[in-house]
Design a binder for these strands. Structure first.
Length: 555
RNA sequence: GCGGGUAUAGCUUAGUGGUAAAGCUCCAGCCUUCCAAGCUGGCUAUGAGGGUUCGAUUCCCUCUACCCGCUCCA
């Protein structure tokens, strides 16, 4: 899809979301708030359905996973142990030339291995600049390699500043490098961009964690954070769950909940938001050594073998693979085609320091193929961290193996809001429809899987000025209402009402007509028209059969 | 945070330094025997703040939000 077409498609989806009440801008009447979105009536139903299906597939349909619902604000030490306090607050600089965003504290490290920076260091033995060598480089190789470098642009003027420098030169050449990077003699000293040698802006703090204060005093000691992920709560409560539920490794703890990140750039509608919801599972497994000791071997990965039935001799690799496959199956069950998804194995240099392997499940959004879920093999990093920081043992006693160990973990971690957006993108279609008169028109329809559709069935009396039809329609509504989300509508022509439900993604509509109330003979009495959203076909169904028929389709 | 673009009704668009226009949607009524029919009536808008001006939706500035890049990994 071209950029133009994909942007237009995305705009249409955003517009539909607002028009029909799926997603609104947060605080819209005050101008909105960057990175925050609300779900309207239809969106709220859609999201509830999705979360419910995930929760059900994790907890109720399995006997090896239990649920948890923890608080958003936790002890600040949790985030020190997890590493978030360190990794989520970086000073950042932007390059004025190439506009890249760089972590300020990594600039000097990055320059260590940069060829052009090495050339500059070569022209300054022991950190003491050699003006002739520098000038030669600036007018030759430097000019070709890093034309954005301030020194290359004005070698003579900056060399004069180097000569006027009276303080000591440091052996790493940082003082020299800063003078060479700074274009404005009157301004503060700059750092060079490791990518293009352009001038970097002043470091600015980027705190990705939202801070708040616990208690009214609001002093430094009261600082707490809104959780940037739900996973840590699971690790923190690991012991309590083990002690209270009789679970045995391998087992999982799952949680759905809000998380908060002060993103640099919220973008792409709800895709990257500052307040978002996660569905995370931490699946605890035996360390490979324990599996080895118990079963004599750790099963090796075989590319063609299915990994649908867990085995006692599985090590982390097979458990990881198992969860990747499970998660793909689940995405297909809520209506994302396998062909719309991609599986991406992170390269070794992309892996977080704690991860042995991470697979991303990506969805082909109109704005690009982007991550819905990451499935990480995290070893026992997190539990060990919390053991160290809290001083409390996170060891599990394995009766079968007669061993004590800190379990390893496989973490499938999904973004709910991203999934909702993917479902909307997947479902959205503008169809050309030709009517009886040969006129073509556009039918906007959301092809949600009935399982996730916000409204399951629309219920219409064919005509609203015929009390018998209305009365019967209300009876049908009351019959189905306790079982599923129904929408009763008697406004406008019947075709209009069908189309309204198409835009809402309602898979079924029922029309109560004169046959239903027995005007055309007893054999048709008690039947209604069941209209299907995707095919627009109709069938005749007995009212008495509706509950079972519809329940089968939506569950 | 940086660069580029955009901002008029619920949606899509028009227009103007002097009363803001239309289509669709929505609401009410009439009509209507299965795919956005018709008739009548109705609600609703210049993102926020400041400046220039007798007068600003229009010109200028600031802010905010959205879209596209840099960045990001739920």
């Amino acid at each position: 899809m071209s950029t133009q077409a994909s942007t237009t498609r995305m705009e249409k989806i955003v517009s539909l979301c607002k028009r029909r009440g799926f997603i609104f801008q947060s605080s819209e009447i005050y101008g909105g708030l960057n990175g925050f979105w609300d779900y309207g009536p239809l969106g709220a139903e859609l999201k509830r359905n999705v979360k419910e299906l995930w929760w059900k597939s994790m907890t109720r349909l399995r006997d090896d996973i239990v649920g948890l619902e923890a608080t958003i604000i936790m002890h600040p030490k949790v985030w020190q142990a997890s590493g978030h306090v360190d990794t989520f607050s970086d000073p950042m600089s932007t390059c004025r030339a190439c506009k890249k965003l760089v972590r300020s504290d990594q600039v000097w490290d990055m320059l260590e291995t940069t060829p052009w920076a090495q050339a500059v260091r070569d022209a300054a033995p022991e950190g003491k600049p050699d003006p002739e060598a520098l000038l030669k480089w600036a007018k030759g190789k430097g000019l070709r390699a890093v034309p954005n470098f301030a020194f290359v642009k004005e070698p003579e003027a900056i060399l004069a500043r180097v000569a006027a420098h009276t303080a000591d030169w440091d052996a790493h050449g940082q003082a020299l490098m800063q003078i060479l990077s700074t274009a404005d003699a009157a301004g503060p000293l700059a750092m060079p961009c490791p990518h293009c040698a352009g001038e970097l802006t002043e470091p600015r703090p980027f705190n990705l964690m939202f801070k708040t204060y616990v208690g009214p005093a609001a002093t430094e000691e009261d600082i707490a954070y809104l959780r940037p992920e739900t996973a840590q709560a699971i690790f923190v409560q690991f012991k309590n769950v083990v002690d209270s539920t009789r679970v045995k490794v391998p087992f999982g703890i799952c949680q759905i909940g809000k998380a908060f990140r002060n993103e640099v750039t919220p973008r792409n509608f709800t895709f990257r938001s500052r307040e978002f919801e996660q569905m995370e599972l931490e699946f605890f497994i035996k360390p490979d050594e324990v599996v080895q000791a118990q079963t004599g071997s750790v099963a090796a990965f075989a590319p063609d073998a299915p990994h649908t039935e867990p085995q006692p001799n599985w090590g982390w690799e097979l458990w990881h693979k198992y969860w990747v496959e499970e998660r793909f199956r689940w995405y297909e069950s809520v209506g994302l085609k396998r062909s719309s998804l991609e599986e991406y194995w992170q390269k070794p240099d992309e892996l977080a320091h704690y991860a042995r392997a991470t697979v991303d499940i990506l969805y082909k959004f109109p704005f690009g193929t982007q991550e819905l879920e990451g499935i990480a093999a995290r070893s026992n990093f997190d539990l060990t961290q919390h053991q160290t920081h809290s001083g409390k043992s996170m060891e599990y006693f394995d009766q079968e193996a007669n061993l004590r160990y800190v379990p390893h973990v496989i973490e499938p971690s999904a973004g709910v809001d991203r999934l909702i957006l993917a479902l909307l993108c997947e479902a959205f279609e503008e169809e050309e429809v030709t009517d009886e008169k040969g006129q073509t028109e556009t039918r906007t329809v959301l092809h949600f899987h009935p399982r996730v559709a916000p409204i399951k069935v629309g219920i219409f009396p064919l005509l609203k000025n015929k009390p018998d039809l209305v009365k019967k329609a209300i009876e049908v509504r009351d019959l189905l209402r306790p079982l599923m989300n129904v929408f009763y509508d008697d406004g406008g022509a019947i075709g209009r009402r069908y189309r309204r439900q198409d835009e809402a993604g309602t898979p079924f509509c029922l029309t109560i007509d004169f046959d239903t109330i027995g005007e055309n003979g007893p054999e048709k009495e008690g039947t209604v028209t069941l209209r299907h959203r995707d095919s627009m076909t109709q069938e005749r169904v007995r009212i008495a059969d509706l509950p079972a028929l519809l329940m089968a389709k939506i569950s």
